[in-house]
Design a protein around this nucleic acid. Structure first.
Lengths: 205, 205
DNA sequence: TAGATTGTTAATCGATTAACAATC
DNA sequence: TAGATTGTTAATCGATTAACAATC
């Protein structure tokens, strides 16, 4: 089916399409076109058609795409037609914000545990969670079979934590620490660093 | 000097180089090579040399780059050799986390105000700040001459807030709301959406 | 049918890599 | 000097766009 190797850059756009489509569905729309979707996400219609057609023929000439059907397909392709259990490492302000964030609902993710190294924070209640001791992290992640983690630890601790996560079997790390991580092959990392994002814009000011 | 149009994709990598270099400087290192820097950030040495050489000849054959000098140059290129005043819109958990975040220090940014629409939140103290009424936002941003904003509002409010920010003269928006924004030409947007970032990785699991 | 829009091909455009002369 | 590493060129590789036949 999707036998050929799909470029990273295309995979990176699919969640953006999915997000826009889910929004359209929430607004009660039933169908859309590459043109319309493109206007919403700021990408050319041709590129959207090309990206989507990598995975099959999901549209109809003359009428466009069924929003519901395309959502289903994208969720299937991105493997978010299931719930991924996620751990948060670091119970600082950002860890709190993530733990309380409602936006993971219906996007395929469910936080199952939060860890911190600081003994003062261990046991603290955050929403429905209780902060667990980082010392037990590797074991707990293995037990729970968790493959996805979000790291909100200081830069100085980040590489060591990433090593532990990889060792525990985590395959996808969302890194909020302002540092590039070295991870074994097979482990994916995405970076969120507000300063870096801001610096990508100041050049143009 | 840097007369030619530099591709976006190169500008996007410069903050990553800068972050790695600042880390090296913190560790007391004085010089580095494209090879070494490349290993840190996961980018080929050839590409790093090519990227940097777009802006001048900052290295030395045989010895590489002076870390301090290259940091200075990158800060100058990215225009973060000054302090940008920044506003936060939305005083929810994420707004709190950003307001308390120490990582903007020395990266060129300084938060000057936080706004929220919710009258119950207006007046609330967050660190050194007091939450201001969103109704006064446009005026306050104009007064303060702020060009950079971070938006942590619900998706439903995001477009309207972005319109207001643009109207107030903001030219760079870091958007935490899970929605693509339409902004006038000349306004830059960067997106941070943890679900989208996670979905970029699940494909590979 | 007429109009609209897909999926796909070919052409264009842009980014990355490899290689090496220059030189510290 | 010998070794190392830059800056740059040319070659390769990959991504985007334009165009259009197919067809709903």
């Amino acid at each position: 089916m999707n036998a050929r190797k799909i470029p990273d850059i295309i995979i990176g756009r699919l969640p953006v399409y999915l997000r826009a489509l889910q929004r359209m569905a929430d607004m009660g729309l039933k169908t859309t076109s590459s043109q319309e979707l493109g206007e919403h996400v700021g990408i050319s219609a041709a590129q959207i058609r090309k990206d989507i057609s990598q995975f099959g023929e999901f549209g109809k000439q003359g009428t466009g795409y069924s929003i519901e059907y395309l959502i289903d397909k994208l969720r299937e392709i991105l493997k978010v037609n299931r719930i991924w259990h996620v751990v948060v490492v670091g119970a600082g302000d950002m860890g709190h914000a993530l733990a309380n964030y409602q936006g993971f609902r219906d996007r395929g993710f469910h936080i199952v545990a939060i860890f911190d190294k600081d003994k003062d924070k261990v046991g603290e209640k955050i929403g429905a969670f209780r902060v667990e001791d980082a010392e037990t992290m590797v074991e707990r992640i293995r037990e729970l079979g968790v493959k996805v983690a979000m790291m909100t630890v200081p830069a100085t601790a980040a590489q060591a934590v990433a090593d532990q996560l990889a060792q525990a079997g985590v395959k996808a790390i969302l890194n909020y620490a302002p540092i590039s991580l070295n991870v074994p092959g097979g482990v994916k990392v995405q970076y969120i660093d507000p300063s870096t994002h801001l610096q990508r814009m100041t050049y143009y000011l």
